[in-house]
């Protein structure tokens, strides 16, 4: 569904991404792993359009064709169906949980005149969808709480929900379970597997090996800006190159 071809991104003398190519197959959960500084988040930023590539191309499958999406603006990428979860919390801290989620549902809210004249009402359908998702993560009571007042773990959950509510065909999750307690971790695992069963495609970055190996269908390993190995989780677990990369860090 997503193809990256020979991506390169340098920051001055640092080669953050140095000729990286891989493919994410439809309806899989693919994990992107590697030691710190191997370029994983940079790849995510390149795909999201937040950083510009120095060279290389990115392709995304729409309907049955591949469209080149290299260096498109972030909002365009999002509207093509790629929804992104960030590593650090990027919720709107002065808004409520409900407001944060409503913003993800559609882009009717950017139409100034439509809103001014009152033609963009929050209908029942939207409210139910939000309640449904909040229920899923056990946070129905938090609908009207200000995001500022939530704990770290609660924020991560809401952010995940927001990412999912954003209309998408492809999910990019950057460390969805980092710093989250084990019970919650299981819940998120459930959610991801459920999404896959509903036909979704997910690309995730994670440091938690157990979680990653449990949940993924395919694992891509990066080191120093390049892909050094990829394969099924069991293979990767015992791959000597991979063990080397992690031990060497």
């Amino acid at each position: 569904m997503l193809k990256c071809v020979n991506l390169k991104k340098y920051f001055g003398g640092i080669k953050a991404v140095d000729g990286c190519s891989f493919e994410v197959k439809e309806n899989t959960i693919t994990a992107l792993i590697g030691p710190n500084g191997s370029g994983k988040t940079t790849i995510f930023n390149l795909i999201s359009g937040i950083l510009k590539t120095d060279s290389g191309k990115i392709y995304f499958k729409i309907n049955s064709d591949y469209l080149e999406i290299t260096n498109l603006a972030p909002e365009k990428i999002s509207n093509l169906g790629i929804s992104r979860l960030f590593q650090q919390s990027r919720l709107f801290s002065n808004l409520t949980v409900k407001e944060n989620l409503l913003l993800a549902l559609d882009n009717e809210d950017t139409k100034f005149w439509k809103n001014l004249l009152g033609f963009n009402k929050i209908n029942k359908e939207k409210e139910e969808k939000i309640k449904e998702m909040l229920n899923l993560v056990g946070m129905e009571k938090f609908e009207d709480k200000l995001v500022r007042e939530l704990s770290y773990g609660q924020k991560r959950l809401i952010e995940l929900v927001r990412t999912i509510l954003n209309p998408h065909k492809f999910l990019m999750l950057d460390e969805p379970v980092a710093g989250v307690n084990p019970k919650l971790r299981e819940k998120i695992e459930e959610i991801l597997l459920k999404l896959k069963n509903q036909g979704e495609t997910i690309l995730l970055i994670e440091h938690d090996m157990n979680f990653t190996l449990k949940v993924s269908d395919w694992v891509i390993v990066m080191e120093k800006g390049k892909v050094i190995a990829e394969g099924k989780p069991e293979e990767i677990k015992t791959n000597p190159k991979v063990l080397d990369a992690y031990l060497g860090e």
């Binding site: 937040i50 909002e75 509207n79 992104r84 990027r90 919720l91 913003l103 809210d109």
Partner: peptide, 12 residues
């Protein structure tokens, strides 16, 4: 609150 996050939600 966060312009980048807003962009990533697809808004201009």
């Amino acid at each position: 609150d966060d312009e980048l996050a807003t962009k990533v939600l697809g808004k201009n």
